[in-house]
């Protein structure tokens, strides 16, 4: 009985169907465990958490420098910046916008630095549904290679105050190499 003290000699190795099930479950647990290091080395989608300490003011300055030197246009009053393939891009999360709009090329790799100057934010790229946490004080570096072209939305999926649901941004990906 589960509600009474067990007999003195309750310690025994599992047997029968129970033993079979424990064995199967252990193997499955090991498969699932090995899958993660495997994907780290051989998979193409990983969150390595690469990040550097940065003050909000310093990060703002980097974003502004990046936008000034890489601006290629404007949409709805928001600058569009195009980083060099293989180069660095900066994206600022703040209540309640993603600044600036980034223009990338399909198949090229970029180091995108993202940080916040106020609260925590959630970088959520749609409709791909790729999500990363953005913290103030941390420059989160995502080494990204777009594998599809088109217009992608960034929405915020970490609560950041009353205008949270208005916080959207854009990433434009062009098909051909420049």
């Amino acid at each position: 009985m589960s509600i009474h003290s067990p007999p003195e000699d309750w310690f025994e190795a599992p047997s029968g169907a129970e033993r079979v099930w424990i064995g199967i479950a252990m193997i499955w647990c090991l498969v699932m465990f090995i899958a993660m290091p495997y994907w780290y080395f051989f998979g193409k989608q990983n969150s390595t958490g690469e990040a550097y300490r940065v003050t909000p003011a310093a990060f703002s300055a980097r974003v502004n420098t990046f936008v000034e030197s890489h601006k290629v246009g404007e949409v709805k009053g928001m600058p569009i910046a195009e980083p060099a393939p293989g180069g660095d891009a900066y994206l600022l999360a703040r209540m309640w916008q993603w600044y600036p709009v980034l223009k990338l090329r399909k198949g090229q790799t970029y180091r995108i630095h993202i940080s916040s100057t106020d609260l925590q934010h959630g970088f959520s790229l749609q409709p791909l549904n790729m999500n990363f946490q953005i913290l103030p004080g941390y420059d989160h570096v995502l080494t990204i290679t777009p594998t599809s072209a088109g217009e992608f939305s960034i929405v915020c999926n970490e609560f950041c105050g009353i205008g949270h649901h208005l916080m959207t941004g854009q990433i434009l990906v062009e098909e051909q190499a420049p």
Binding site: N46, T48, T143, T147, S148
Partner: peptide
């Protein structure tokens, strides 16, 4: 599904 999204590290 994961293998279908953009590459990221």
């Amino acid at each position: 599904w994961l293998s279908d999204v953009w590459h990221v590290r």
